[in-house]
Amino acid sequence: MLSLLAATAAASDPIQWAELGLRPYLFEIGSFQLRYYSLAYLLGILLAYWHLSKMIKAPGAPMAQRHADDLFFYCTLGVILGGRLGYAAFYQPELFGGIELFQLWNGGMSFHGGVIGVLIAISWVAWRGNLNWLRVCDYIAVNVPLAYMLGRIANFINGELYGRPVESDVAWAMVFPGGGDIARHPSQLYQAGLEGLLLGVLLIALFWQTRARYRAGLLVGLFTVGMGVGRFVNEFFREPDAHLAHRVVETGLSQGQWLSIPMIAVGVIVVIYSLLRPPVGGSKTAPKPQAA
């Protein structure tokens, strides 16, 4: 994808998304289509489960493999149900009371709703297993950004959730089929890069290369701040949902930005709380893995 953008950097005309040869599905058999968006969810969850299973084998893990297995199941439900219900609550309340609420392709999913769903799932597993809730959140948070990146790439492949019109010459500006004959920011790729790849690499490096995992709440706090700031910045380039465009006109900020502000505040509070408390197991000796 980056090589494609680099190859067109010198072009004077915007890139035509329709000429990239993209389609929303990998293959189809009859009326069945394996869509990239569904595939992104599946691969993201499997990747997160695989990496979480490796993480809990490192010293200091707050859970056993059976807890990771439970989290895999309940967090999957939390992402899907929370994401869809959150979209209806935050962006399109009229979906409640109709069959459209269950049509995941009609409107989409909410990241903030998915976060709430995952937090509920973690709370349930932590309560049943008598686990440290905040430390379990740390381990889950490390795995979210790269899965999120796959979802945003799928949005780009679908030609949806495109950006606002460019205000100056931007070599990688694109014309999307649903956005008229206007050159726009490929904001899906901005989000995939900033909130996905960059944040994911940072959290993974902190987990494996530092003692951050011994400070309860530090990783999930940094994740929350990073996602909130990334979303807030990228919303300046992303086209608001048509039925919520008035929010930008009235307040100067989009619905996503208003939802990101409390997210950033909560993340900062969690980071400060984590840094003010001693590391798990003391500051000099690494803790032993918690008994199953």
Rank of each mutant, 00 (worst) to 15 (best):
A192W: 00
P186I: 03
S254D: 08
V229D: 01
V280Y: 12
S254C: 12
G200W: 00
P262C: 14
W258L: 08
A245C: 11
V229F: 10
L199H: 01
Q255M: 14
Q191Y: 01
V248K: 11
I182D: 06
G226Q: 04
Y273I: 04
I272V: 15
H243W: 02
G200C: 01
F232I: 03
G180T: 06
L206W: 03
V266T: 15
I204L: 10
A192K: 06
D181Q: 12
V280C: 11
D241C: 02
G281Q: 11
D241I: 03
F232E: 00
T251G: 08
L189C: 04
L219W: 08
G200A: 04
E195G: 02
E239G: 07
G252Y: 07
L259P: 03
R247F: 07
S187V: 01
R277N: 08
L218Q: 01
L198Y: 00
S274I: 01
N234W: 00
A216Y: 08
Q191E: 15
A192E: 06
G217A: 02
A265V: 15
A216N: 10
Y190K: 08
L259F: 09
T210H: 10
G193S: 12
I264M: 14
L244D: 09
G196T: 03
G252F: 11
L203S: 02
V249G: 07
R231E: 00
R238Q: 05
F232H: 10
Q191T: 05
A205R: 08
Y214A: 07
R211D: 11
I261P: 07
A245D: 08
Y190F: 14
P186W: 03
I261Q: 05
Y214Q: 12
P262Y: 12
L253W: 06
V233F: 15
R211C: 04
L275I: 03
F236Q: 09
E235Q: 02
V249K: 14
H243D: 02
T224G: 11
Q209K: 15
V280A: 13
R247Q: 11
G252C: 12
L194C: 01
Q209T: 14
M227P: 00
S187W: 01
G200R: 02
G228V: 06
